[in-house]
Computed example of a mutant assay.
Amino acid sequence: MKQDSEDKLARVLEALENPSSFTKEELDSLFADEECVQNARAILSAREALARQQVSQPDINKEWNAFERRHRKTSVIPWSIGLVAAACIALLFILHNPTAEDKGLQVFEAIQTAHTVRQETINGVMTIEVPRGMQKQITLPDGTVVTLNAESSLSYAVSSFGKDIRMVTLQGEGLFDVAKDSLHPFIVRSDGLSARVLGTVFNVRNYATEKMKITLLSGSLKVVSVQRADSLLIRPGEQAVLTDKHELRTVRTTQTADITAWSEGSFYFDNQTLVEILCELGRWYNVNVVFRDKECMNSRLHFKAFRNESLASIIELLNYVSKNPVVLEDKTIIVGK
């Protein structure tokens, strides 16, 4: 009997963290046992408490107030993928629309965007741009393989690439499998950070909605803060994170496969805030995201789903694990009552 209870608890935990692995009927059956669900949520809360000892939680009120002071006279700013400015303009995820306060806080904006990958050379610079809702794997002239996530771009000078160094510039997110070449270092520049390698596998994530981070999967990597000129060496399983003060710090991550799940067609969120999760969904499905209660933006979830699922299905799964109701209306995800 005890074993049956433990097995059911394990199944409920799995369902809370990975609802896309279950049918709707299975989820309804598992979540019908309220006591078991409460016990499972308590376990997840304990895990999150431990994780927060290592991961700092955003101060939504502080960042919101700072953003309001800087943008009292501005409104929502549209942008295209080729621009350095990305979809959310705020220090930390928050975009304010003064004309729609009764509707909540808009943290992500849908845009008119092409649905094809664009590749062109202008003034000797090759640029590859991947729109929302797509990802693309490319091979550079030296044999380096780069997988670009949605709303990302990669550029490099055609004539000089590989002569002394192999330098590329990234906006968005890219997974790099760098071809070994001891004579020509490979350098990735991405706003505030640059990474210098000879041959390794690493993931660079640089969206305006969150702090920039570089995760090393194999090999070795030297990461340099452009503004402060300080650097650090990271080992496999470590992340280099750029703080708001442009300082570098190292964070240990136990599951590097989770970091690159996007390149294999999955959403994987481990103890991430609801606003991070929904901005990622907004980027993939190109929809608006609105919070009617900004306090729930900081709530953290474990969530996994497949990118080829419809947004309606993703929202349905998300509501099984989120304490805050999430609805889809037209092209807008709305959180809170």
Rank of each mutant, 00 (worst) to 15 (best):
85 A>H: 14
128 I>Q: 12
218 S>F: 04
12 V>M: 13
191 D>L: 11
123 N>K: 12
48 E>N: 06
47 R>D: 12
78 P>H: 14
168 V>L: 10
15 A>R: 05
335 V>C: 11
54 Q>P: 00
137 Q>T: 15
307 R>D: 06
203 N>R: 08
95 L>D: 09
269 F>S: 04
185 P>I: 04
131 P>K: 12
289 V>F: 01
275 V>Q: 03
121 T>Y: 02
295 E>G: 00
223 V>K: 15
142 D>I: 02
221 L>C: 14
324 N>T: 14
81 I>L: 13
135 Q>I: 09
247 E>Y: 02
66 A>G: 00
88 C>E: 11
229 A>M: 12
28 D>E: 13
163 K>C: 03
272 Q>R: 07
87 A>Q: 13
71 H>E: 00
288 N>D: 15
68 E>A: 08
172 G>H: 04
288 N>G: 08
149 N>C: 07
324 N>E: 11
306 F>K: 15
211 K>S: 12
228 R>G: 00
258 D>M: 03
198 L>F: 06
168 V>W: 07
2 K>R: 08
153 S>N: 14
311 L>N: 04
233 L>A: 11
51 A>G: 11
317 L>P: 01
270 D>M: 15
99 T>A: 14
275 V>M: 08
93 F>T: 14
10 A>F: 09
307 R>F: 05
224 V>M: 10
272 Q>M: 05
232 L>S: 08
287 V>K: 03
89 I>T: 11
194 S>V: 00
284 W>Y: 14
277 I>R: 03
184 H>F: 02
308 N>K: 02
129 E>D: 05
271 N>M: 02
45 S>M: 11
157 A>K: 09
46 A>L: 11
9 L>K: 07
119 Q>K: 15
197 V>R: 05
82 G>S: 11
164 D>W: 02
104 G>P: 01
164 D>C: 08
283 R>V: 10
62 K>E: 14
125 V>Y: 00
173 E>S: 09
180 K>R: 06
27 L>H: 07
264 E>V: 06
198 L>Y: 08
273 T>W: 01
75 S>I: 12
186 F>A: 01
